[in-house]
C-alpha cells in the first residue's frame, strides 16, 4: 500500500514498474524533433477516419494496442485502464477503448491527464488492486480546435502566447513487477486546483504555471527532497510563457529548477521552425514526450530520477464566455530508473 506523506504525496511501497509504452503522432509531430522516437506517425491526420473525433479515437486505440504488443500483453492481462482526453464526454477514450473490453475508468484532467492517469494506475498496482494497469490519453489539434476555438479554415489570428494542441497519443502500462533494468514509479503527488484569475484562453501557460509551481513546491516538502535529487524535471505544456512564470514563482521560495527543467511543450515541436507560437499543448503533448523521450532516455540510463508534472488548464469555453477564469491543475509523478535489484 502506498504511504501518505503530508497532504497528498503518496510514496509507493511496492513501486509499480513500467512494462511497456507507446506513442502515436500526426503530421506536424512527424516534422518535430522527436519524430524518429514515435512508434507510429501518420501523415494523414484523419488516420483514415472520416472525422477528426474518429481520428482521435483511432489514435488512442492504436497507442494502447501498440503498447500491449510491445509488452507482449493480451487484453485479459490488464485489470484496469485509466484514460481521458480533451473532448466533451472524453470521446477519444470512451469510443477509442470500447473494443478492448478492459475495465475502464475515465478521467478528466485536461492536459494533465497523463500524470493523473499514471497516478491512479500506480496507486492501483501498488495496492494490489490491479496486477497491470494502463494509463492512456490523447489530443488532436483539429478536434480540439473545433470544440474550443474556431473551424479549421477560419482565418483567426493567434496571438504569440497561444499554444498548439499536439495531435498525439501516449499509452503506458504499469505492472507489479518486471525485468531489470526498468523504470519504476516511486512517488506521485495529486495537485490542487489553482486559479490565478487568467481569462485569456490564448494564454494557457499563464493559467497553469501556479498549479505547477504549487505541486512541485509541495512535493519537495512532503517527500523531503530537493530539485538537485532529480536529473530532470519535466512540466506538461507550460510553453514559453508558462515556463518563465514557473521559474519566477518558484524563485519566491528560493527554489531554482531552471538548470534541470524542460517543458514537454517546448520539446515536441521546434518552436522556431514549426509556427507553434508559445509551444505545444494538449494531453497528447506530455503523453507522447513521456513515451518518446523521457522513458527511452531513462531506459538508456541517461536519467536516473525524473519528475513529470503534467499541467492542465481546466478551461470551459462556456465558463470563459460567462466571464469566469481558467483554473489550472498539475499532478506529479516521480519516475526512477532501477538498473538491478535494490537499485
Amino acid at each position: 500500500m502506498a504511504k501518505l506523506c503530508g497532504r497528498s504525496t503518496y510514496r509507493m511501497e511496492r513501486p509499480p514498474v513500467v512494462l511497456s509504452f507507446a506513442a502515436v503522432g500526426g503530421s506536424k509531430e512527424s516534422q518535430g524533433p522527436l519524430a524518429d522516437r514515435f512508434d507510429y506517425l501518420s501523415q494523414d491526420d484523419l488516420f483514415g477516419a472520416d472525422s477528426w473525433e474518429k481520428a482521435e479515437t483511432k489514435m488512442q486505440r492504436l497507442a494502447l494496442k501498440t503498447a500491449m504488443n510491445k509488452g507482449g500483453l493480451k487484453k485479459g492481462d490488464l485489470n484496469v485502464l485509466f484514460a481521458g482526453d480533451l473532448l466533451n464526454q472524453c470521446t477519444g477514450s470512451s469510443y477509442g477503448l470500447r473494443e478492448f473490453m478492459i475495465p475502464f475508468l475515465g478521467v478528466y484532467g485536461a492536459c494533465s491527464t497523463m500524470s493523473e492517469s499514471l497516478l491512479m494506475a500506480s496507486v492501483f498496482v501498488d495496492s494490489g488492486l490491479a496486477k497491470r494497469a494502463g494509463a492512456i490519453t490523447s489530443s488532436h489539434f483539429c478536434s480540439a480546435e473545433r470544440q474550443y476555438r474556431f473551424p479549421l479554415e477560419y482565418g483567426s489570428v493567434r496571438p504569440p502566447t497561444a499554444q498548439w494542441t499536439a495531435t498525439a497519443s501516449g499509452a503506458v502500462i504499469l505492472g507489479e513487477t518486471g525485468p531489470f533494468p526498468r523504470v519504476e514509479v516511486r512517488h506521485v503527488c495529486a495537485g490542487v486546483i489553482e486559479d490565478p484569475g487568467i481569462t485569456d484562453a490564448n494564454n494557457m501557460g499563464a493559467a497553469m504555471a501556479p498549479a505547477a509551481a504549487c505541486v512541485l513546491k509541495r512535493y519537495f516538502q512532503e517527500s523531503a527532497t530537493a530539485p538537485s535529487d532529480y536529473d530532470h524535471i519535466f512540466t506538461g505544456d507550460l510553453g514559453e510563457v508558462g515556463s518563465k512564470l514557473l521559474y519566477e514563482l518558484l524563485q519566491r521560495d528560493h527554489i531554482d529548477i531552471s538548470d534541470r527543467h524542460q517543458d514537454c511543450g517546448l520539446i515536441l515541436f521546434d518552436q522556431q521552425r514549426q509556427d507553434v507560437h508559445a509551444g505545444g499543448s494538449g494531453c497528447g503533448c506530455s503523453a507522447s514526450v513521456l513515451c518518446c523521450h523521457i522513458l527511452p532516455e531513462m531506459l538508456a540510463g541517461r536519467y536516473k530520477d525524473v519528475i513529470l508534472a503534467a499541467t492542465g488548464a481546466l478551461l470551459s469555453p462556456t465558463m470563459v464566455q460567462q466571464g469566469d477564469t481558467i483554473p489550472g491543475i498539475s499532478h506529479l509523478v516521480h519516475l526512477h530508473f532501477a538498473e538491478k535489484e535494490g537499485d
Partner: peptide, 9 residues
C-alpha cells in the same frame, strides 16, 4: 508578471 512574461504581437 503575466504581462511581462507574455510577448505581445
Amino acid at each position: 508578471m503575466v504581462k511581462e512574461a507574455s510577448r505581445g504581437s
